[in-house]
Amino acid sequence: MAKQVFKRPKSLKENVFHYCPGCGHSIIHRLVAEVIDELGIRERTVGVPPAGCAVLAYNYLDVDMGEAPHGRAVAVATGIKRARPDLVVFTYQGDGDIAAIGTAETVHAANRGERLTVIFVNNGVYGMTGGQMAPTTILGQTTTTTPGGRIALRDGYPLDLSQMLAVAAGSVYIERTSVTSPKNIMKTKKAIKKAFQVQMDDLGFALVEVLSPCPTNWKLSPVDACKWVDEEVVKSYPLKVIKDTTQSDG
């Protein structure tokens, strides 16, 4: 008899993803759902989606979800978690959301060591509004507001928020991964699981930055978009464990 070896996670609704072909969001949504299932926390998890392409994340993830204003996800999540410490609270945010309009909220939540899990999806553009420059856009990258490519003198440098957050005393675990290959996807899942576990173990602030392709706004095929992440984006945002003090004594 055939054995089913791959099925839809319980925490993932049966809706068809609205994301563009080759977008990383659907993969990352699935990974989050798989992790929630595996940790057995669906009935005590609350998610906070961002403004941006993933604003409709609640159409896919079958957990309690509360929408935050653009950039304020960790502040809203802080309120939920402090009011109900028994809940497992995560935010799901894009690079414009977390590294531009929400920088202050994110830095301070990390610094307070809020027991939160942050999924930070970095695709280097404002996807939903049509592909404008994001704080994370790499130098030379063409967007609708950097038509000749991002120039440091005019547009500033790409912001490595994860590195900034690693400096905060309250952050415990920060890792950067990507979803460009099965291997990278497995690594991302492992990182997301650890970021949830850190919260459940009451250790502090945990964040996984996932480099994610945006073929539509990058004007590349899905395959070329993955290649671009692997060859170009990682030069500015190398894949690595940026901080992990989960094993340390203090």
Partner: peptide
């Protein structure tokens, strides 16, 4: 009870929003 001195007015009201979502008088 939870008291937080927030980093900004924006953060403060959004924390209150979160607490309210969780059902607490905020």
């Amino acid at each position: 009870a939870t008291f937080i001195q927030a980093e900004s007015e924006l953060a403060a009201i959004n924390m209150v929003m979160g607490a309210s979502m969780a059902g607490v008088r905020a």
